[in-house]
Design a binder for these strands. Structure first.
Length: 206
DNA sequence: AAGCGGATCGTCT
DNA sequence: GACGATCCGCTTG
């Protein structure tokens, strides 16, 4: 048995509204078990998406086959394909019946960097997992393999754990790449961290 | 340093 | 039939 890192986040951690869960997840560890090895990254950037109140959210237009996991119990992976080629990882939150999720946008790669570099086809550490599509590629997370997976189970190949580390300062900005509800301050980052995604759509103030 | 467009396809109108 | 919660490479200044 491999030595486990930190403590698995319980389902109750995801019961709150997404704008509460998103900052809470900063500093937590995203753990991917793959072919007997462990790929590990610290979450440094998240975004909150609500349900029917949030025009930018997939759940906005109601319950469909695609958004089913968003309406299910909290703590499960919602993985979708964007622009036909990239996977993005979300964690469902709020009680069953209410849609809401947190998009994991960037990690600081901690362990398994060589394997991540293989998946990504490059080795610059700040480019391995700094973006929602990038981190899924680095960790080998696909929609087919992981949509609906329980992230709170010790048996899952993707888990979220806490080791007690928390950011000294959190910076809050508008969400990246959304055209609707673009003014809402729902993106949370570890202030000043080198692995936060740059994003072509948002510039830091002066 | 910043801006553009292409790749590529599931989902919803 | 259009449009993305993106990424990358190429162009321009």
């Amino acid at each position: 048995m491999s030595v486990e890192i930190g403590q698995l986040l319980p389902r109750e951690a995801y019961l709150s509204a997404p704008d509460q869960v998103a900052p809470m997840l900063l500093g937590k560890l995203l753990v991917r078990r793959l072919r007997g090895q462990m790929l590990l990254g610290r979450i440094v950037e998240t975004e909150a998406y609500f349900g029917i109140n949030d025009p930018a959210a997939h759940a906005f237009s109601g319950r469909t086959a695609r958004t089913e996991v968003l309406y299910g119990p909290p703590g499960h992976a919602y993985v979708y394909t964007i622009y036909g080629m990239h996977a993005c990882l979300n964690v469902s939150c709020e009680p069953e019946g209410l849609a809401g999720c947190v998009l994991i946008r960037a990690l600081e790669p901690v362990e398994g960097l060589a394997e991540m570099a293989m998946h990504r086809g490059l080795h610059e550490p700040t480019l391995l997992t700094s973006g929602p599509g990038r981190l899924c590629q680095a960790l080998g997370i696909t929609r087919a393999g992981f949509n609906g997976v329980d992230l709170t189970s010790a048996d899952s190949e993707v888990q979220i754990r806490g080791d007690g580390w928390a950011p000294a300062e959190i910076a809050i900005t508008p969400r990246i790449g959304v055209n609707k509800a673009a003014e809402r301050m729902l993106r949370f980052t570890v202030a000043g961290h080198a692995c936060v995604s740059k994003g072509r759509y948002w510039k830091p103030p002066l």
